[in-house]
Design a protein around this nucleic acid. Structure first.
Lengths: 158, 158
DNA sequence: TGGGACATCTTGGGCGTCAATGGGATTTAC
DNA sequence: GTAAATCCCATTGACGCCCAAGATGTCCCA
């Protein structure tokens, strides 16, 4: 498998370490990454984590911005300056640093959430809340699209 | 046969395993799936299950979205992060994880429902209820469409 | 047409392997 | 010198894998 998929919750031990799910480790290894790169997600209390190709996503977007505008500067600052490297030990564990705890609210358990090209770290309860919010938004999107597909007549009838 | 058709109810054993109907297994094998992928259906208490091509449909849709808008994030979160791999053992059984039980209400028995490109897992009683609701909705839709096809006059007459 | 043999599917249970976790020992940085 | 990080090893619990038997349906033959 070459994508980060599914999710899992693991416990942080007394030393502040937590196992990266074996499935995710396989993806990391297959892609040949020695270290992981971590970014604080912008609008949610989660950490985006992955190989350095995590940056590709942002740099592609950066390339489209006018370098004289503040937006480009901010984006660069965000993805280049505000990230952190995270080392994986021989057993496939990472140590959870303070900035991750602060941004996510993680204390004793970590939810690992696959996102295809990368994965996220969530506080389990926050994750549960967020996933329901996402489902609600997608359901509404689906209903809106369904209504439009039926045409204005059906929409009026509703 | 290359599509998932018909339905069947099987029992979960003491270890939380349930046989995938032989007919569905034949389709899985014919399509060359090593593992199954499970997603919680958006608006019904059912699990969508199929090969990884289940994801292809969503990812193709995802590619049309602006990757920096919330909708793209939601879609990725839903199909990458909220799914789960399910392994099929040598006898063609799967173990039913908790998130499937929580979302569907499944406890002792599982209804497998063919959906062509994929199949669904239902709690048998919920399935029975839903199949009648679907029939009712389709009947109403058919009547509505018939009325519209007859023109506004016929609609007013109704 | 009814019965019996057979094949296949479903179900049950034991065992080994691997991943997650806990803890001690050694090294490194400050 | 102290604290943190890293390495190494042990435990355990879940999961995958194997073998076995009951149930169900099918086909053939009398």
């Amino acid at each position: 498998m070459d994508r980060f998929l599914s999710n899992a919750v693991n416990r942080i031990d007394a030393k502040g370490r937590v196992s990266v799910p074996a499935h995710f480790r396989a993806v990391v290894q297959k892609r040949g990454f020695q270290e992981l790169y971590a970014l604080r997600a912008l609008d949610v209390p989660a950490i985006d984590m992955g190989g350095l190709d995590l940056l590709d996503r942002y740099e592609a977007r950066l390339a489209n911005e006018d370098p004289f505008l503040q937006t480009a500067d901010d984006m660069s600052f965000f993805c280049h300056g505000d990230g952190a490297f995270v080392k994986v030990d021989a057993e496939g564990r990472i140590t959870v640093p303070d900035f991750i705890r602060d941004h996510t609210g993680i204390t004793t358990d970590v939810a690992f959430v696959g996102r295809g090209q990368f994965f996220q770290l969530w506080e389990p309860q926050q994750f549960a809340t967020h996933r329901e919010q996402v489902r609600t938004r997608l359901l509404k999107l689906r209903q809106d699209m369904t209504a439009r597909a039926r045409g204005p007549v059906a929409e009026d009838m509703a």
